[in-house]
Design a protein around this nucleic acid. Structure first.
Lengths: 337, 337
DNA sequence: ATTCGTCAAGTAAGCGCTTTCAAGGAGTTT
DNA sequence: AAACTCCTTGAAAGCGCTTACTTGACGAAT
């Protein structure tokens, strides 16, 4: 609507512009603006005024160059659209802010190759890198471990990779979830899987397979960790005539329930459904979701601790897996007779 | 689990390290790595090998300094936890990537003052700034408009501010939504409001007030744009004995429905509920949500167009409001008799 | 009164890159 | 064979900051 021409003919003011305007040296301006050393109040005031008048913003590129650090860490994650990741990121963000670091968030809703490429080029820009539920192949991780820049792996554990890592225990609660289903009489179940590249998906499947001991007979059906993906995969899942659907996460559980309803099946009367993560929405849909409470706060805290240690060049010991609990709600019930 | 000491004793390799290793000048390394100019294949290969061997990553600070641009734009938004924002961001991200820009995402889940501070300090770091559903006071926006750095306002329109802006029409569809309710016989409704600082909230309310013409008698109840916030606000809303709840967005609709169910009321038999945004979840919960389809793709595209123009120092004309349509599903029904 | 010590302010050296400019080598033309 | 052009490569100048190091002024100590 409004016509607009920016007054960018005049280039951005630099520290020299400010110094001249205030009648002092650039060193003084720098000292005033970064508060690194005492300056006569009179001069300081003049510098502040000049900076304000010129709307001066220090170039973080120049600052980063001379300081040898941009005071920022990068976070790479598969899908910011999933509120789960965001909650973890938020917690790390707290820590980062407290320690004076900015956070660059990069979502690669693409292939694993993209993720690696993103990681590599972010490395030139940040002081540290946090990889959330990373799907980078082992060779890539090995290479990342050789970098002088600290890299932290979250929700992925790999032996033989020399990187600090922290993750939630996916295996145990998934096995417990199966135990819960077994006690309700379920035998034939379908696992609506996540990505094969995801460590969490492998762990969850491992938990399900372990539950064969309880008599759980599970089939995997490929899907993806989204509402729509699960929605679309339900039909195939039903060909296996399961009495329960174990979904990779809450989002897929939501999509599955929606599809089941569309097919005239009710949850949990006809089919039981479980999720994973305990998103806010899991407590508020109908039926409320039986799922696993993932301690996102802990996870975020511990991830940042590892990063902080890395940034300070300290030796770190990766903490043990963080336990997660099953929470039983109304989306699971006894096997229909 | 694994003990860990990083080999950061040796500092990061610089372009000089690579040049020495390859036996060429730094200029040649730069040319090879940035592909800016032709280099003999033999030399190029030597440079690439040296760079690989050293795991060299160019410092983006240095690069940004000399180029006068970090090739990145900042995006500031109120709450990344809301998938709506993310969808818009994703679309802008496409455009940015295509044009060779990286995107820094900053969520301020805090006060408006934080948002302004974030904007100011991001300005030193990016080539452009996109403000999503910004709540920065007018004075702040005026100041931002004075900066040489391009700033784009998304989902907020303010007269007298010399910034390019693009937004979805909130007013019209909200009025139509009320019309829909009116036709179903609703008169007493409660608006579960969003933040008073939000332009979108003001516009939506304006649409509701306009609907007095249809006989809609609306009361505002303070809430916030989250599941939990709406959940908590329902009891107060019910004191006004409404037959319908108009929620600020889909997330609040979700929370409201959950609370109503908890109180033994069913939707839409006892109370009708509407949302706004049409998140994926709106189509998949029970009852499916009557809401407004916000054209996020368009919005993201147009926002990036404005930003690109700004980055290229072109004159821009803010486009007209983007129309949004009401979609009627099962969360609204006739007034109970 | 002279010598120090102290401390505010300025001078200048780089941080790691890109890019202009100059140099030199190879290929073309006369 | 000389003169010219074209093209690859290197040398060096900054980009905008911070931070030793230096200077100089002023008060305290001798």
């Amino acid at each position: 609507m409004s016509q607009r021409t920016r007054a960018s003919a005049s280039r951005r003011p630099t520290i020299i512009t400010v110094a001249k305007a205030a009648g002092v040296s650039t060193a003084t301006v720098s000292r005033v603006l970064s508060g690194s050393s005492a300056v006569t109040p009179d001069l300081a005031a003049r510098v502040h005024k000049a900076a304000d008048d010129l709307s001066y913003r220090p170039s973080s590129a120049a600052r980063g160059l001379v300081r040898g650090s941009m005071r920022s860490v990068g976070v790479i994650l598969p899908d910011l659209a999933n509120a789960y990741f965001f909650d973890v990121v938020k917690q790390m963000h707290h820590g980062a802010t407290e320690d004076g670091y900015r956070m660059l968030i990069a979502d690669y809703s693409g292939t694993a190759a993209d993720e690696y490429a993103t990681a590599l080029d972010l490395l030139g820009q940040v002081d540290g890198l946090i990889l959330l539920s990373s799907r980078i192949p082992l060779a890539g991780l090995t290479e990342l471990a050789r970098q002088p820049t600290p890299v932290v792996l979250v929700n992925r554990i790999e032996r033989g990779i020399d990187l600090p890592m922290v993750a939630i225990d996916n295996f145990t609660p998934m096995m417990q979830l199966c135990g819960h289903l077994a006690r309700l009489g379920h035998r034939r179940v379908v696992y609506l899987a996540g990505s094969d590249l995801s460590w969490q998906n492998r762990e969850r499947w491992r938990g399900i397979e372990m539950a064969r001991a309880f008599g759980i007979d599970a089939v995997r059906v490929a899907s993806d960790a989204t509402i729509e993906g699960a929605h679309a995969a339900v039909e195939e899942a039903l060909t296996h005539e399961p009495t329960a659907l174990i979904c990779f996460n809450d989002l897929s559980a939501l999509g599955a329930i929606s599809r089941l309803r569309g097919l005239g099946l009710s949850v949990p009367e006809d089919v039981s459904v479980t999720g994973f993560d305990d998103l806010a929405v899991a407590r508020h849909i109908d039926p409320r979701l039986t799922t696993v409470v993932s301690p996102k706060i802990d996870l975020g805290d511990q991830a940042w601790s590892l990063m902080r240690a890395g940034l300070n060049d300290e030796t770190t010991v990766s903490p043990p897996l963080i336990p997660a609990d099953v929470v039983i709600r109304e989306s699971t019930g006894p096997v229909p007779s």
